[in-house]
C-alpha cells in the first residue's frame, strides 16, 4: 500500500489556501479595479511580485518573520502554542502569498471588464456599494471567480520552493506532493516519484482542460 499522507496534506493545503486566497483577493482585486489612488501601481507591483521572485526569497523572509523571536512568530506561539515555521499554518500563509497574483489578476481583469454604467445604474437605484458588488458585480464576474479559484488551487498543488523553505519536510505535517517527489528521487525511490508525478501531471492537465472547456462553452453560448 502506497503511503499517501503527502497527497492529503497537499489537498488540505490547496483547499484551505484557495479559500483564503478568494477571501483576501476579492476585496483587493475589486479595489485595484476601481481605485484611482496613486498607490495603485505600487500595490499591483507588490501583488505580482511572487510571479518573478524566486520562491526561496519569499520563503527566506517568511521564515525570518515566522521565527518565534519576531513579533508575529512570538504572537502566534503565545496564542496557539505552536510555531508558525515548520507548521501547516505557516505553509498555508506562505502558499497563499505565493499564489496571490494567480488569483488577484484574473479577478481584477474580470472586474475591470464590467460595464461601469451598469454599476452606476445599480448605485443610482439605491444600491449601497456592498449590495452593488454582491448583486451586480459578482454575478457578472462568475467566470473570473471560477478562473481565479481554479488557478489558485492548481498553483497551490504545485507549490514547492516556498513550502520547503517555510515548512521543511515533515511527514503528515508539511510534506506536500512536490516535496515527496523530491525526497523520493533523492532516496532513489523512482517508482514512488513516478506514481506521484504522473498523478500530479494528470491532475494539472485535467484542471486546466476543465477550465478551458468551461470558458469555451460559455463564450460560445454568449454568441
Amino acid at each position: 500500500m502506497i503511503e499517501l499522507s503527502s497527497v492529503v496534506v497537499t489537498l488540505k493545503l490547496a483547499f484551505a489556501s484557495t479559500l483564503l486566497l478568494m477571501l483576501v483577493s476579492t476585496p483587493l482585486a475589486w479595489w485595484l479595479a476601481t481605485t484611482r489612488a496613486r498607490i495603485k501601481p505600487l500595490i499591483e507591483a507588490l501583488t505580482a511580485l511572487p510571479l518573478v521572485l524566486p520562491p526561496t526569497v519569499l520563503g527566506f523572509y517568511l521564515l525570518i518573520l515566522f521565527n518565534p523571536n519576531s513579533s508575529i512568530g512570538y504572537f502566534w506561539l503565545q496564542t496557539t502554542g505552536d510555531t508558525l515555521a515548520f507548521s501547516f499554518a505557516g505553509i498555508l500563509i506562505a502558499s497563499t502569498l505565493h499564489s496571490l497574483p494567480f488569483v488577484v489578476q484574473p479577478l481584477q481583469n474580470s472586474f475591470e471588464s464590467i460595464n461601469k454604467n451598469v454599476l452606476e445604474a445599480a448605485a443610482n437605484l439605491g444600491s449601497r456599494p456592498l449590495d452593488s458588488f454582491l448583486s451586480v458585480a459578482a454575478p457578472l464576474s462568475k467566470r473570473g471567480f471560477l478562473t481565479a479559484a481554479v488557478l489558485g488551487f492548481a498553483h497551490s498543488v504545485g507549490e514547492f520552493g516556498v513550502i520547503l523553505m517555510v515548512g521543511g519536510n515533515i511527514p503528515e505535517r508539511t510534506r506536500v506532493i512536490s516535496i515527496d517527489i523530491y525526497t523520493s528521487v533523492e532516496t532513489l525511490d523512482y517508482a514512488r516519484a513516478h506514481f506521484l508525478s504522473i498523478g500530479t501531471l494528470a491532475f494539472a492537465f485535467l484542471t486546466l482542460l476543465t477550465l478551458y472547456l468551461i470558458n469555451y462553452s460559455r463564450s460560445h453560448r454568449l454568441i
Partner: peptide, 20 residues
C-alpha cells in the same frame, strides 16, 4: 451625498439594464 442615498433616479440614454 452618494448617489444611492439621493433618490434622484436617472434613466440613462442607453437603458443600462442588468444583463444577468
Amino acid at each position: 451625498v452618494p448617489t444611492y442615498k439621493r433618490g434622484a433616479i436617472l434613466v440613462f440614454q442607453d437603458s443600462h439594464l442588468f444583463p444577468h
